[in-house]
């Protein structure tokens, strides 16, 4: 589903990604952890080209995303992204947030879009908040609307960039629940998160990134119980 080869990314003189190779199979759930500044967000943002790659190739669903003949808007619509800060559209109701993509990108009729939107809001447990504006929602509710907004385009892959780290602790669970259901339903997911419980329960693979490279990857069980690399061990000691 995603094939990343020799990915390098620099911001000016600062090299943030120093040669990443990563293959993600359809239906796979991959959790990425690593210290702040290690390039986790940058990696995710390269996958849907919110950042231009400096060199290397990224193939998503068979399309080389940096190829000029690839319709990047189409690829983006097939690649959902959930942000740490939610980034809901504050001038639209929850339902409108969810239906904007179907209406403007998929050119679905308003009635049809509302139907899709309501189904998704039911799926994330927010059908009663359809007409609420983002500033009337809690953080957890906002993030669930944001997930529904991405799902509305029927993406093949979902990217999550620390989806729960801006939330109050008591609101983390409801978002993780939605993500777990998604994973169980077979969604391909790349999740940057330090939620070990989530990783161990639903991830197929855990990856440790440090200083722009993948230092270690393994099944969550082995990764958390018997980390091989010294840097991984040190980091896990710190966050667990």
């Amino acid at each position: 589903m995603i094939k990343i080869k020799e990915l390098h990314k620099s911001f000016g003189p600062l090299e943030v990604l120093k040669g990443i190779d990563l293959h993600i199979k359809p239906g796979e759930v991959v959790v990425i952890i690593g210290p702040s500044g290690s390039g986790k967000s940058t990696l995710l943002r390269c996958i849907n080209r919110l950042e231009e790659t400096t060199s290397g190739t990224i193939i998503v669903d068979g399309y080389d995303i940096n190829d000029t003949s690839t319709n990047i808007n189409f690829i983006r619509s097939e690649t959902g992204m959930v942000f740490q800060q939610f980034n809901l559209f504050p001038h639209m109701t929850a339902l409108r947030n969810v239906t904007l993509g179907p209406v403007k990108v998929r050119k679905v009729s308003r009635t049809e879009a509302n139907k899709i939107g309501m189904e998704l809001l039911v799926r994330v447990g927010l059908e009663d908040k359809a007409n609420a504006y983002p500033d009337q929602l809690s953080g957890g509710q906002k993030q669930r609307v944001a997930i529904a907004r991405s799902l509305a385009l029927n993406p093949k892959v979902m990217l999550f960039d620390e989806p729960t780290s801006a939330l109050d602790p008591e609101l983390v669970g409801e978002v993780l629940e939605v993500m777990k259901t998604l994973a169980t339903d077979g969604m391909t997911m790349v999740v940057v998160s330090h939620e070990m419980g989530f990783a161990r329960e639903v991830a197929d693979r855990a990856i440790f990134m440090d200083d722009g490279v993948v230092v270690e990857e393994n099944t969550p069980e082995t990764f958390f119980m018997r980390p091989q690399n010294e840097r991984t061990k040190a980091f896990l000691r710190m966050v667990l």
């Binding site: 919110l50 097939e78 942000f83 980034n87 809901l88 993509g101 403007k104 991405s150 509305a152 385009l153």
Partner: peptide, 18 residues
């Protein structure tokens, strides 16, 4: 307007103009 707004819009496949 926060850059995250454009990014959220682009990430659902909206064109720059949309």
């Amino acid at each position: 307007i926060d850059k995250g707004q454009t990014e959220a819009g682009r990430s659902i496949g909206l064109t720059r103009f949309q």
